[in-house]
């Protein structure tokens, strides 16, 4: 972890936003919510970490973080199918990171093989009927400028 959560807060107070958004701290947050339930001041730290992740993506500073690549892949697949085909998520993530972490693809493939042998690998991808409804909402959000379409934008290499 580049900086502890305390250092993150202190850096933001010192207006060192770059340093915070480039760090891997928030990308290591698993949403276990332990900090949130323990914070004596009632700060929702997990939600705050989500906000930092979104800002890092928006400013193009999180692109190299594994968890960011996985999250983007996740969003792309949900947008396409309405649900998550887990094997496709793992395979796509493995391909996307194969240059920087070549061992990862292999170890994922080994695990896939083990699961396959135990009959646990799901086959096929299911698309929900409402997927067109989700696209409709997406288009509406973009037209109303309610939320930018970051996944599309980063694909187009605008940043």
């Amino acid at each position: 972890m580049d900086y502890t959560p305390r250092e993150i807060i202190a850096s933001l107070r010192a207006e060192m936003v770059d340093r915070v958004l480039k760090s891997n701290t928030m990308w290591l947050c698993t949403s276990c919510y332990l900090c949130t339930v323990r914070c004596p001041a009632g700060i929702k730290i997990t939600d705050f970490m989500y906000e930092l992740k979104r800002l890092a993506i928006e400013y193009g500073l999180g692109e190299h973080q594994g968890a960011a690549i996985l999250a983007k892949t996740f969003v792309e697949l949900v947008n396409k199918y309405g649900r998550i085909p887990e094997m496709k998520l793992m395979a796509t993530y493995g391909m996307k990171t194969s240059k920087t972490k070549p061992g990862k693809l292999l170890s994922q493939a080994m695990l896939g093989l083990k699961l396959f042998r135990r009959g646990r690998l799901p086959l096929g991808v299911e698309t929900i009927k409402g997927v067109e409804d989700l696209h409709k909402i997406d288009r509406w959000l973009v037209s109303k400028k309610m939320e930018p379409n970051l996944v599309e934008r980063s694909k187009g290499g605008e940043k």
């Binding site: 969003v75 949900v78 409402g130 909402i137």
Partner: peptide, 20 residues
């Protein structure tokens, strides 16, 4: 016809969309 809840990943990219 339920859809994916979004898990921890969707919220990392979009806030409003994740809630929707």
């Amino acid at each position: 016809d339920w859809n994916c809840c979004g898990a921890t990943a969707y919220m990392s990219i979009y806030e409003l969309r994740a809630h929707i």
